[in-house]
Nucleic acid binder design. Structure first.
Lengths: 202, 202
DNA sequence: GTCTATATAAGGATAGAC
DNA sequence: GTCTATCCTTATATAGAC
């Protein structure tokens, strides 16, 4: 399903594509797409500037692949989050917990995914926007069903769904590994916040 | 108090500094600091590339001035928001409404302020971080006093304060002028969301 | 698939005239 | 305070050897 190797192992030097992907995520998250040079990336990946172009057509295409894989991962995650239950309260709770924990744990990657969209070409952006829309739909559906079932109470389910996602996305902006809280602590607290936002009676 | 003219009039061509500031905000918000050239800015301001340097030492210093003025404006705003009442519920409600409305109305400027911090020099960033800390303190204080007064209920006042601010900041990311909601609609709904997050009994 | 070398372009900033 | 002209550096991407 994925065309790129999953970036998660660490010890023995991984293949070139993976090293490039990791270096690019780190650099894009720190200095932004335009603030990052192809030399930054290739050097951090332990190769010459030219080697990057063996694996990617351009810097933009590299960003797109990172973004595409990252978004598909999140979409799959939120779908799994709601698959374990039929209760909207439980579903929203798990979804927010998973979403927030993920954005805290991989905050570097999440920053690239959420804040470098403007650097994508029109065509590539459209593809990403489509995936983001699917993610939105999952959240909106849970809240809509909760309202219909009378377990959620909100004057605007659509805006509340947006706000819940928004709250989770922004975790990628402020979360720091050296910070006050662990990803789990944030995830658990945000679960409560989201249920309150949705007007859960529980 | 402000060293720059307030950027809000429109009809007769404003002075050079103001035109540069407006052009820079627009460009930084759209393409980011590193994606914007000094030519982009000066041309949009109706002058030559060299003219920019009569008014600003560098591109970075221009960003810093925009950021500084913008942050001070927000700090003053939130302090005024809480100044009109002693009731934490009312204070948090007004604060969130004002903060969110502002981030929706001037979402272009707010985007620059919140998402281009990494482009600042170490010294300039420190100055901005100090102002942001003051803003944080205002929100934290309101929630702390609400908890102490028994009108708010949250297992972690600090994290809840962060989340409320976070929710408001992220409005700058997703809000669109052509979108579904007006700034007022978002502000009013978010007031409710924030009070629920704080566990307001009202 | 990786390297060295380089083409080609663009960007930040300055000099000096008006 | 604004302009034209330009210096100097850096950047993306490619050519061609190994």
């Amino acid at each position: 399903m994925l065309t790129m190797p999953v970036v998660s192992e660490s010890s023995p030097s991984p293949d070139a594509r993976t090293r490039l992907a990791r270096a690019a995520v780190e650099a894009f998250a720190t200095r932004g797409f335009h603030g990052t040079t192809t030399r930054d990336i290739s050097t951090a990946a332990g190769m010459s500037p030219a080697a990057l172009y063996v694996h990617h057509r351009s810097k933009e295409e590299l960003l797109f692949e990172l973004s595409r894989v990252g978004h598909l991962r999140v979409l799959e995650m939120v779908r799994e989050s709601v698959a374990g239950s039929d209760d909207p309260v439980e579903q929203l709770g798990i979804l927010v917990e998973d979403f927030v924990r993920d954005h805290a744990v991989v905050h570097t990657g999440a920053r690239v995914i959420n804040y470098e969209l403007a650097a994508l070409s029109e065509e590539h952006l459209a593809e990403i926007v489509a995936i983001r829309h699917e993610i939105d739909l999952v959240v909106r559906d849970v809240i809509d069903r909760g309202v219909a079932a009378g377990v959620f109470h909100t004057p605007d389910a659509h805006m509340t769904a947006l706000a819940v996602l928004s709250l989770g996305i922004d975790v990628a902006r402020w979360f720091r590994d050296e910070g006050r809280w662990t990803p789990d602590q944030v995830a658990v607290h945000y679960r409560l916040l989201a249920l309150r936002m949705a007007g859960s009676v529980a």
